[in-house]
């Protein structure tokens, strides 16, 4: 027997009842993620990425199916995974340090102990000297770092990142991507990453799930054949470009219509 996978979705689907009748936001999805992997979900808006995240985080009960963490049923349980939303959502009345320990505090760790645990990480990951500042004093990139540390310092092994760098400028974004890879290697977490940015998905992940709309579904899962650590220049390597081209083809609605026509 091999050990159970870190996270798996079994036949998970989501249907909303609207005035116009049932609306299938997410067609049944099966997804298995091994421990320590970095998986990206890419797809147009309305492809069910956020729905998957809400279901895995226990914020929304799925219409059908189960969510398993370490082989145990975790459907509808909150606090089982770290979830970072698009906005940093730092609390303006807490210092940077106290924002970072929020998750640990909620999971029951005494504040003093949580602060002691968090302080070295703040120093190591570029927030040194800002511990006692308030979030308003931070730049966009630093706010994202604080929000990410808040998520990564949880005891949970699985981390969901919902377009964490979507609002950053290109240069900051590139820095943050490298920073994320470094911190991911340090923390040994299993990461599910949602993005609109194909380059970002390929650069960061071990595996890419390309999703489609109407209904939201996983179209294809692609292994990224790039060795780590990946230099920035990897984006111009033929393998990268080829993969990007392939993903673009999957995401282009024109191709999709042609495939549907072919199926019909």
């Amino acid at each position: 027997m091999h050990p159970p996978s870190k996270l798996s979705l079994e036949n998970v689907s989501m249907t909303f009842q609207t005035k116009a009748g049932p609306f299938e936001a997410l067609a049944p999805v099966d997804l298995v993620v091994e421990a320590g992997r970095f998986i990206s979900l890419i797809g147009p808006s309305g492809c069910g990425k956020s729905t998957i995240f809400n279901i895995v985080a226990g914020l929304q009960p799925p219409t059908t199916g189960r969510v398993l963490i370490d082989g145990e049923d975790a459907t509808g349980q909150i606090g089982r995974v770290g979830y970072m939303l698009q906005k940093d959502l730092l609390l303006p009345w807490r210092t940077v340090l106290d924002n970072v320990i929020l998750g640990m505090e909620i999971q029951g760790m005494p504040a003093g102990q949580a602060r002691d645990r968090a302080r070295p990480y703040l120093a190591r990951y570029g927030l040194g000297g800002f511990e006692n500042q308030y979030p308003s004093a931070l730049s966009g990139g630093m706010r994202q770092r604080a929000a990410l540390l808040r998520t990564l310092l949880l005891k949970n092994d699985v981390v969901l990142l919902d377009e964490p760098f979507g609002a950053l400028d290109a240069q900051t974004k590139a820095q943050m991507q490298e920073w994320l890879l470094k911190i991911w290697a340090d923390f040994n977490k299993t990461v599910i990453f949602v993005t609109h940015d194909i380059d970002e998905a390929i650069y960061l992940s071990d595996e890419i799930c390309v999703m489609g709309t109407r209904p939201g579904r996983v179209v294809e899962r692609i292994e990224t054949p790039l060795a780590r650590p990946r230099p920035r220049s990897v984006v111009v390597e033929p393998t990268f470009v080829e993969l990007k081209h392939y993903c673009l083809g999957l995401l282009d609605p024109g191709t999709e219509d042609k495939r549907l026509d072919a199926a019909a």
């Binding site: 606090g79 979830y83 609390l91 998750g103 909620i106 999971q107």
Partner: peptide, 27 residues
């Protein structure tokens, strides 16, 4: 109140009392 912040608290596994004291009151 910001709905997303409330969701963040619940995603961290917070109880209603924790959300109230750590988020609702200060906000």
């Amino acid at each position: 109140l910001d709905r997303d912040s409330e969701r963040l608290f619940y995603s961290l596994g917070a109880s209603r009392w924790q959300v109230f004291t750590k988020f609702v009151v200060p906000a």
